[in-house]
């Protein structure tokens, strides 16, 4: 199944962007501050309606889906998450099952807690978690829904090395099972290391789209970020050792 944008424009934020994302791939959206990365992700999630152009999931326009059907298909982690009430980690993760009324979801919640290494913290109130632990709990909330598409805005930003590697492994596992993973990433090294495909945005325009080595070439980085930088690693390879 594909998640595609066609000629999507949004006043002063996105200019005629077209791209077709495939399930089974990890796609990174990169670009400097204000490039429109989070805006594009919100359009892909169906949370922002473009002024012109269409967003389609499979053959159907995303806007034609009922909110609950869309929520089951597309999981979304916002960049600046908030948690209004001091719920426990387990309760927070269980909120991910809201698009599935009637289903117990106990198994999916357990899997999400385990994937984010939260078993020991499940009863702990959110107010007594560190920033990284909270970020893991919020990611587990998205995983608990088991959507076909995982859209996350800077999901690795607050994580330590081990948990960052663990989450990347989870993204890869989800992609291996056919899910589409779309990540907004600020850190180009992370995009190089973990993505199958990189989309580079600049000033609301899609300026490069392809395998990481091509989309984040020296020339593109120089043009978009105005920095002379070169990738020293091996494109596409995992730079981090993953836990067994």
């Amino acid at each position: 199944m594909t998640l595609a944008v066609e000629n999507v424009s949004l006043a002063q934020r996105l200019a005629s962007i077209s791209a077709s994302l495939r399930g089974g791939e990890v796609t990174a959206i990169c670009g400097p501050n204000g490039a429109g990365k989070s805006t594009l992700l919100a359009c892909l999630a169906g949370l922002l309606v473009p002024d012109s152009g269409t967003v389609t999931l499979g053959a159907a326009p995303l806007s034609s889906l009922a909110p609950q059907a869309r929520a089951r298909a597309i999981g979304y982690l916002p960049q600046t998450p908030e948690i209004a009430w001091d719920v426990s980690v387990e309760t927070l993760v269980s909120l991910g099952r809201l698009p599935w009324p009637g289903a117990s979801g106990a198994e999916e919640i357990e899997q999400a807690l385990a994937a984010m290494d939260l078993d020991a913290l499940r009863q702990r109130p959110i107010s007594r978690l560190s920033g990284g632990e909270r970020a893991r709990a919020l990611m587990a909330r998205v995983l608990a829904c088991q959507p076909q598409w995982l859209l996350a805005d800077e999901p690795l930003a607050n994580l330590d090395l081990a948990h960052s590697a663990r989450l990347v492994a989870e993204f890869r596992a989800q992609a291996a099972q056919g899910a589409g993973v779309v990540l907004v990433l600020h850190d180009l090294a992370q995009a190089m290391n973990h993505a199958d495909r990189v989309m580079v945005l600049d000033g609301g325009k899609l300026v490069a789209d392809g395998p990481p080595g091509e989309a984040l070439s020296e020339a593109v980085i120089a043009r978009v970020w105005g920095v002379k930088a070169r990738w020293l690693g091996e494109p596409g390879a995992m730079a981090l050792a993953l836990p067994a």
């Binding site: 949370l47 597309i74 998450p81």
Partner: peptide
């Protein structure tokens, strides 16, 4: 609980 945007995504 997760804010307006996350609620809409749910």
């Amino acid at each position: 609980t997760l804010g307006e945007v996350a609620a809409r995504s749910l």
